[in-house]
Design a protein around this nucleic acid. Structure first.
Lengths: 117, 117
DNA sequence: ACCTATTTGTCCGTATGTATG
DNA sequence: CCATACATACGGACAAATAGG
């Protein structure tokens, strides 16, 4: 997993990490059961503090994307990969809508209708 | 607001703080708009680290019970007080059920029925 | 418009505890 | 029993938003 951090950015380092990992998961490049690098290890390689990475990992845990366990590390949850699969369908829907010149509101209305069935 | 912390307890300090403040809110002793003591101030008075109190406050924020703003502090949300009011009704319900010797399952079934209306 | 005090936000460093394997 | 890796807590520093004068 390749992550790049911009220490000069206005967005906090821990949030950059959250976005990077979340992106990897939602893009399907990190599947359920796969392990993230150990927090301190990643911290060392990025030259940031271990807490900063841990804070990011804990945020991802709060979002339900990873499971944290002492001695085992951070593991991508199955819910996360399911979310990634769901996202692919969402992308398909939006692409199809754009191809047909359908307005965003109409798309949302359609999805709402299906959800309320 | 009187909070007591047991440093020797197995439950983490920050969680003891979360429970204490949450309890105050749900008991109605802290109403919407009221401010919690400044994190570092409370930390000093309890002789714990400022980070520890801040961690507790941020947990409460994640639960939607307080709003945190730089320079303003931690303010109890209206959602929190509404939750407290809801809790009072729940207590009333349980008390009334116990007085009448109604089983917990029956109470839950009743509530479910009302919710599904 | 300016300045100052307050207070949370983030980050660094360090240390110890504790569940996992 | 031992290595790994997260969990918690301590301490210190500076940034950034808010409120008030």
């Amino acid at each position: 997993m390749i992550i790049r951090i911009d220490p000069a950015s206005a967005t906090p380092i821990f949030e950059q990490l959250v976005r990077a990992v979340r992106g990897e998961i939602l893009a399907g490049r990190l599947a359920a059961g796969e392990r993230l690098p150990a927090a301190r290890e990643l911290a060392d390689s990025l030259e940031v503090n271990g807490h900063t990475v841990l804070h990011a990992y804990q945020t991802l845990r709060d979002e339900g994307l990873v499971e944290l366990r002492r001695g085992r590390g951070a593991v991508v949850t199955s819910a996360a990969t399911e979310l990634a699969e769901l996202r692919r369908h969402a992308v398909d829907l939006v692409v199809a809508a754009r191809e047909r010149g359908i307005t965003p509101d109409a798309v949302l209305a359609l999805v709402r209708e299906e959800l309320s069935r």
